[in-house]
Write a protein that binds this DNA or RNA. Structure first.
Lengths: 329, 329
DNA sequence: CTGAAAGCGCTAACAC
DNA sequence: GTGTTAGCGCTTTCAG
């Protein structure tokens, strides 16, 4: 392997000068610069990033924590974040926890060991305080996960409010026996949605039915199976806040199979306004998140923090989701 | 920051001994070991991975190259690969090229600069020879991309054969005016499929219609738009090999809108056997890839290569895809 | 079983 | 403008 030292020797200058050329430092005469560059090309010099990173104590790498990449919401989110990071000169390491607390903890440990310059949290099964402990004073930011924001920066949607709106809409149309699906009810985001769901009931002086709260429902298959169960047991559900457009699609599938009319017999609302909501029959009423803007703002913020090293109290930025009324509700 | 040297001083041993304790080296007396561990805990010692990586010349990190993560096929593929790598102690950096050749080249450069221990290629817009040049003698493996395999290892599906089978099926049912969708026709995988498509025609003494070759069609929206165009222009297409289940879903959507009966008027075959093929109406006939097995085998292979440093001539492993006949064909 | 010492490749004061 | 020098934190011979 040809090193900076070889190049220095070969071109009759010192290591420092070569280093300056590489990092495009000023105060190098154009002659020596071009001379050094020539030698580097002749000998196929390539920087050893490991040495550079070690010396500069930064990895140019940001970790992203998600439950599962094989999920349209998260793959989209990670796609945006990753692309934004790349534009700012950062690579991204994607960590799937599969909701395993120990895998999650392991990532916080890696952060401490300087394997990343920052960590983006899109979902978590650990309490906010524990995360804060594990990470020490490293940079960590939550994206579309509804943390309180006492220990780190949070970018998120007004999940509670928008879920309340959608629920209220169903209630106002006379659908009063409502179900609610979550993928992982222990997460702050799902908790916020559930709060909104309950709040909408309370506002109308109604009570929600606890038997109609379904957890661990996160994809098409889960939706199909849940649908089967609902229709087989003849549960008198009139409407469902489905947690994601994919769950909604699965429910619709099962409904068709069982000759349940949507929205007449069962009204369904999805989440995320994913294109799949356009290809089912009927099309899915859903809630629009703003993850692209969110990702943009968030990556800018992180990069500033990494470069500037600014220490300020945690910020929390909330985006407004909108209820999109299509044909399933 | 507390370093290995601090721990050595504090526990009255040398740096080397501490290092041995950390790496769980044999030949350390249990007493000194426990003493050192105690001191490490008391002072919250955490390894600086950057220094370790630098010293050992390995990153414990594998890069994955894909066009776009916001795509059900790739997000699933990356999910499997990433999980398998994690199990073997490797992190993964996901690079989206968005089909930009320069972004792709940049990743090969990073590989050369020692930023990864290996690179997994799931799709590429560059010729095989150029890739081989860019990477020098680093480890690089293709996953489900149909390279020839002269310069690096390849794990892939028998795309040509299975596409031929599906096409033959449509032809045998009397659908002779067939269309073919690709997302990026320049990729070896898409080329292989096209070959199979054409081959099936030739076998029956038929010619395919070049006007019915549609490129840059990769997701639901593209499928919808393509469908609109087909039905508006009244193209006399009787069947389509759709390139992915998502494209197929979009086409079905447009067909329903235009009162086109599937499969009577238009027969559609998707790819990948994604759950979405179960929720459309009709359900989508599709082709089953074996990416989970593929990912498994491939990661094992890479890890062996990294650890063993085995230099052997490139291998190529081919998996058999199956045509799953549902209701859209 | 343990310590001394060398060095991985690069950067960044600090001199000149 | 350029060179000298001193490390970054860790691993790994080689002695003992």
């Amino acid at each position: 392997m040809v090193t900076i030292y070889d190049i220095a020797r070969l071109s009759g200058v010192s290591k420092s000068t070569v280093s300056r050329v590489i990092s495009n430092h000023p105060y190098v005469s154009t002659e020596t610069k071009s001379k050094v560059i020539k030698v580097m090309q002749e000998h196929n010099y390539v920087t050893n990033s490991l040495a550079k990173q070690f010396r500069q104590k930064q990895t140019k790498c940001i970790a992203i924590l998600i439950p599962d990449l094989n999920h349209p919401y998260f793959s989209q989110l990670v796609s945006y974040i990753s692309a934004d990071c790349y534009k700012s000169g950062f690579k991204t390491v994607v960590h799937q926890t599969f909701l395993d607390k120990n895998i999650e903890r392991e990532v916080y440990n890696q952060l401490q060991k300087n394997e990343y310059d920052a960590l983006i949290l899109t979902s978590s099964t650990l309490p906010e305080v524990e995360i804060a402990e594990y990470t020490g004073n490293k940079i960590i930011v939550a994206c579309n996960e509804d943390f309180r924001g006492d220990y780190f920066d949070v970018f998120c949607l007004n999940e509670e409010e928008v879920t309340m709106k959608a629920t209220s809409y169903l209630l106002s149309k006379g659908f009063t026996k409502l179900g609610f699906c979550s993928d992982n009810i222990s997460s702050p985001l799902q908790q916020a949605r559930l709060k909104g769901f309950i709040l909408a009931h309370n506002k109308k002086g109604l009570k929600h039915n606890k038997d109609f709260l379904f957890n661990d429902i996160s994809n098409i298959e889960d939706g199909i199976i849940l649908g089967k169960r609902l229709f087989r047991d003849n549960l008198e559900i009139e409407g469902i806040i489905a947690g994601s457009d994919f769950v909604a699609a699965g429910l619709i599938r099962s409904a068709i199979r069982n000759n349940i009319q949507i929205p007449q017999h069962l009204s369904i609302v999805g989440f995320d306004n994913h294109p799949i909501s356009l290809v089912t029959n009927p099309q899915i009423s859903t809630i629009c998140n703003h993850i692209q803007d969110m990702s943009n703002d968030l990556v800018n913020h992180i990069v500033n923090k990494i470069n500037g090293g600014v220490k300020q109290s945690p910020i929390k930025k909330v985006y407004n989701g909108e209820f999109i009324n299509r044909n399933s509700s």
